[in-house]
Design a binder for these strands. Sequence first.
DNA 1: CTACAAAATTGTAATCGTTGTAAAAATGAT
DNA 2: ATCATTTTTACAACGATTACAATTTTGTAG
Lengths: 137, 137
Amino acid sequence: MQQAARERLVKFGIRPSVQRIAIMKYLLTHRTHPTVDEIYTALAPEIPTLSKTTVYNTLHLLYEHGAILLISIDPANTHFDGYTHPHAHFLCTKCTKVYDVEIDDTAFVDRNKPSMAAEITDSELYYVGVCRECGKQ
Amino acid sequence: MQQAARERLVKFGIRPSVQRIAIMKYLLTHRTHPTVDEIYTALAPEIPTLSKTTVYNTLHLLYEHGAILLISIDPANTHFDGYTHPHAHFLCTKCTKVYDVEIDDTAFVDRNKPSMAAEITDSELYYVGVCRECGKQ
DNA sequence: CTACAAAATTGTAATCGTTGTAAAAATGAT
DNA sequence: ATCATTTTTACAACGATTACAATTTTGTAG
């Protein structure tokens, strides 16, 4: 998975540093849509000199090169997703978890591209509500 | 339009105060998806005692009652929309304007509701890119 | 191998949108 | 008219993100 992370960086034209590989690897092995803080806290033990600024910088770099998704649905924190195939996201406002949502018509988003756009760099479909887990209580 | 704003508040079970009417009216007459600051700056002259906290409180109240939409696509600012019919939004990263985007299949979002959701309170479809206006330069 | 320029990382300070809080003002009911 | 409730207000505090300049690492040419 270390190797997969490195290859993904190279594939998207990003030079693979220790920090970048670790962050990419974290996103590939944790499909939990982590926040900057979660990633930083998880990696700090194995990379003691890691700076939170580096996590910010790296995630934005990965996002701008199309290697990861940026999820802006949670007003409190930006989440990130290492898997870039077409899918939607669901935010539970109780536990603030972000879930993946498969969509039946993956061409829908492309079909409805805004006419006033000269260029589209990203598109996102979000749902907000309460998950079954939290709904029980 | 003053009257339309008042009626909309009542329709959604919100008591119509001077401040609430003014904010609702602003959203109905300015289809620019304004931010908290834009609304506050615009209304402060006519309501000199207006507090920014009130604008925050009121917008969240309106949103929670379903009278307006909350647009979270812009990392820098939350935008609001007084028109709640099904449509998408497009953020230009150059001028940070938010445009309305009509969608061909308004049932799409409902059809793909996440299975792990006990309750859905909101759904949003976003596009990010550069608008024609900014693309010229 | 060495030196130098470019790129990446780091720590700290600063920014700024948003929220918390408690007091003041306005409103509605008795 | 009085009192409880709701709403508004001002200000402080918070916290995610960014700015910045210094330090470290990396790649390349000699």
